[in-house]
Simulated scan of single mutants.
Amino acid sequence: MLEHLRSGPSGPHLDGFAAVLERQGYDADTALRYLRAAAHLGHVVAGQGGMPNDIDLAVFSEHLRACRCPRAKGGRRNHHTIYGAKLFRRYLVEIGVCRLADVTAAPAEPVLVARFKAWLRKHRGASDPTVKLYARDAAGLLTAVGDDPEMWVPAAIRSFFMDRASQCGHGTNEKLTTSLRAFLRYLAVEGRCRPGLADVVPAYAHWQLADMPRYLSAEQVSRLIAACDGDAVARRRDRAIMLLLARLGLRAGDVAQLRFADIEWQTGSLRVSGKSRYEVRLPLPQDVGDAIATYLECRPSTFPSDYVFLRTIAPYRSFRQGDGISSVVRRAMKRAGIVSPFKGAHVLRHTAATEMLRHGVPLDKIGLVLRHRGIDTTAYYAKADVGLLKQVAQPWPEAL
Results as ranks from 00 to 15, higher is better:
Leu87Pro: 03
Ser301Cys: 11
Ser7Cys: 13
Arg371Leu: 08
Leu21Glu: 03
Leu258Glu: 01
Pro362Asp: 15
Gly50Ser: 11
Gly84Gln: 04
Cys98Asp: 14
Gln208Leu: 14
Ala232Val: 03
His4Cys: 09
Asp199Glu: 15
Glu94Val: 08
Arg373Asn: 11
Ala382Cys: 12
Phe161Lys: 00
Gln167Ile: 04
Ala144Met: 07
Arg349Tyr: 02
Leu400Val: 12
Ser273Thr: 15
Pro341Asp: 06
Ala105Asp: 13
Arg259Val: 09
Ile82Val: 15
Leu258Phe: 04
Ala108Gly: 06
Glu190Cys: 12
Met1Gly: 13
Glu219Phe: 03
Arg299Glu: 07
Phe183Tyr: 10
Arg23Leu: 12
Met51Asn: 11
Ala58His: 11
Glu62Gln: 13
Ser159Phe: 01
Cys298Thr: 12
Asp137Tyr: 10
Leu389Phe: 02
Ile292Glu: 00
Leu120Gln: 09
Pro300Arg: 06
Pro397Asn: 12
Asp376Phe: 07
His170Cys: 09
Ser273Asn: 03
Ile263Tyr: 02
Ala227Val: 05
Asp211Ser: 15
Gly360Tyr: 05
Asp364Cys: 09
Arg185Tyr: 04
Cys67Trp: 05
Pro110Glu: 05
Leu180Gln: 00
Ala139Gln: 11
Ala232Arg: 14
Ser327Tyr: 12
Pro149Gly: 05
Arg259Ser: 12
Asp238Gly: 03
Pro341Ala: 08
Met333Pro: 03
Gly169Asn: 13
Leu363His: 02
Ser179Asn: 02
Thr81Gly: 07
Val233Met: 12
Leu142Glu: 04
Ala38Trp: 01
Asn173Tyr: 00
Pro9Lys: 01
Asp54Cys: 09
Arg299Cys: 10
Val329Tyr: 05
Leu248Ala: 06
Val392Pro: 06
Gly75Asn: 14
Pro12Cys: 08
